[in-house]
């Protein structure tokens, strides 16, 4: 069996990245990561068959609890987001730069409802199969499928609204974003 240190080295980035994309806040993600590993080390893992899946399950639960705690406040803010929104005055060039950054992606994801975000993160960040995701979240396979599908749909809309061209090739997508952004400003 791996030592605690080996486990920590092997999975700290996976755990952190998941938390980061789930909660969209670096400091919270750091605290959560630490809590996850403390839980992992305190639990008897002798009978754990699939270590990564098990750790991700703990991670998922920590994130969900955290979000649940935060939701009351956040909900109020996000439900009334229009009150806080300013008219867009960020220079176009900076917008384009930001668009491709991880921060932005964490932001796009954070606009997804938690349930959908969780499924998307597990499926595409960690490449868990649909069955494994169902298992991790203790939901039926059909629910996972529909959440994944819905998540992709909503995310596509979020990205389109943000002006991100959905394409496979990076360079190309950058160009298109530039074109798109340019056009919309003119």
């Amino acid at each position: 069996m791996e030592t605690n240190r080996e486990l920590f080295e092997a999975y700290n980035k996976d755990v952190y990245r998941t938390c980061y994309y789930m909660v969209h806040d670096a400091a919270d993600a750091e605290d959560l990561t630490q809590d996850v590993f403390i839980t992992v080390f305190r639990t008897n893992r002798e009978n754990v068959e699939h270590m990564k899946a098990w750790i991700m399950k703990i991670t998922v639960n920590h994130c969900l609890n955290h979000l649940k705690r935060k939701r009351t406040l956040q909900q109020k803010v996000s439900d009334n987001l229009y009150l806080f929104k300013k008219s867009p005055e960020t220079p176009v060039d900076r917008l384009i730069e930001q668009r491709e950054t991880t921060m932005e992606w964490a932001k796009y994801l954070s606009q997804l409802p938690v349930k959908l975000r969780m499924v998307i993160t597990l499926r595409y960040m960690h490449d868990f199969s649909l069955a494994e995701v169902s298992d991790l979240l203790s939901i039926p396979l059909g629910t996972t499928k529909s959440r994944l599908h819905k998540g992709l749909k909503v995310l596509r809309r979020i990205l389109l609204e943000a002006g991100v061209q959905i394409d496979q090739k990076e360079g190309e997508s950058y160009e298109k974003v530039r074109e798109y952004a340019g056009a919309s400003v003119e």
């Binding site: 980061y20 670096a26 750091e30 630490q34 991880t102 595409y124 960040m125 992709l152 596509r156 394409d167």
Partner: peptide
């Protein structure tokens, strides 16, 4: 395409603001 993009984005490391894992280890 969106799926591919997600796979690519969510696994891209360099921009993730990783914390100092060594000091985290000490705290743990």
């Amino acid at each position: 395409k969106l799926e591919n993009m997600l796979e690519h984005r969510l696994n891209k490391d360099q921009n993730v603001p990783y914390p100092n894992f060594d000091s985290m280890w000490e705290r743990i």
